[in-house]
Amino acid sequence: MTPTEVFMQQVIYGLSNGMIIALVALGYTMVYGIVELINFAHGDLFMLGGFFALTIVGALGAAGVLDIAHMGDHSNWLLLFGLVIAAGVFCGGLNVAIDRVVYKPMRKSPKLTQLVAAIGVSFIIVNLGLFWGGAPMEVFGGGNAAAASKDFPEILEGSNLLGEDSNIVLRLEDLAIFIVTIPLMIALTIFVKKTRLGRGMRATAQNPVAAKLMGIDTDRVISATFLIGGFLGGAASVMWSLYNNTISFQMGFRAGMDAFTAAVLGGIGSMPGAMLGGVLIGLIRAMSDQYIETRWTNVVVFGVLILILVFRPSGLLGLKQREKV
């Protein structure tokens, strides 16, 4: 491989991972924008999405609909899109339920109380994942112990799209990530700009009292935000599981930290910021893996986070709070 090819390969890895991180980061930034809560459970919700998708695959296999042993032989786009939507709805619904049961009763409590509650929810979900991993399902290959990583089946065919002779590898999985994430981001942007509920979201984020005085049902807006944020997290988890071919109850922690860093890097509360931050974190990880050393990558990523917090606390695209009173 020439140095250029090595670099291009890292760009592909970085962009693919970055788009997934960006989807998760949107869930952090949207919820923060509307209720000023760092939803620490968001990464773990993402993890449950992977388990949910794997369980569906297992159930379809058990029912004879899918031939699990030969899944990678040909691409099953229908299954992929189905899983993305199913995991999205699952995580979105769960996110709304968590908000109603845990966060909503303490909406007027100090922010620290809410943050600690979110960390508590995170622990609960991680252990739910551990419990789920112990479920006796044949599809959970890779280890029978509850805590072991589970194999996630190949849904798309694995050959190199650039030809078997090419040194740079671009697979359908990479492409699928763009096919899923880019339309979701475009749809989200249009939704927030153009629809009534989307305008209600922006208004609630900018001034919740004024939003109520405009006749906006802010409780409904908040639920919609948790629903959409959760949906994006669920969709991201299917793409992540597909890309890495493995899931574990701990995967939410690292993905969550990457996504949270991305949201802060882009400017927490800013949706374009979360998208940009996600892609940048993905690229930084890939470059650090290649040119520094894998074990230094977390140091590099969080080093970037610290530099941002010191020199540009509002993030790359975040707005400085300078409203006239």
């Binding site: 922006r202 001034n207 009292v209 004024a210 005085l213 006749g215 049902d217």
Partner: peptide, 21 residues
């Protein structure tokens, strides 16, 4: 939010406009 639809409308103290719209 229902009161606004009935015509009970307030211009709040400090304006509370939406700065990023």
């Amino acid at each position: 939010d229902k009161l606004v639809g009935r015509g009970l409308v307030q211009v709040p103290e400090g304006r509370r406009i939406f700065p990023r719209m």
